[in-house]
């Protein structure tokens, strides 16, 4: 699984990254997790608000920090 966190580097984006990293570690999920901070790359996903979470190329959430339960759902735990 490939998880991307889109965000230009504000507090919310960092929190999102940390929460997702935690869920992945705790559940022993095999997934690569990357931060996308380049604005041109972010805009390719056609989103208006950050942070956004992309799982396997599909935008799952945008504009807020998802909760742990929500992330577990997104990652299919």
């Amino acid at each position: 699984m490939e998880v991307k966190i889109l965000g230009t580097g504000c507090g919310k984006c960092k929190t999102t990254y940390a929460v997702i990293e935690k869920v992945i570690k705790e559940n022993n999920i095999t997934a690569t997790i990357t931060k996308v901070e380049d604005i041109m790359e972010i805009m390719n996903y056609n989103i208006l608000s950050t942070p956004a979470v992309v799982v396997d190329g599909e935008v799952k959430t945008k504009g807020y920090v998802p909760s742990e339960t929500e992330i577990k759902e997104l990652l299919g735990v």
């Binding site: 965000g7 504000c10 604005i39 972010i42 208006l48 950050t50 504009g63």
Partner: peptide, 10 residues
């Protein structure tokens, strides 16, 4: 959120 203003603008 100031960091959202650029993606929004574009």
């Amino acid at each position: 959120c100031s960091c959202s203003s650029v993606p929004l603008f574009i």
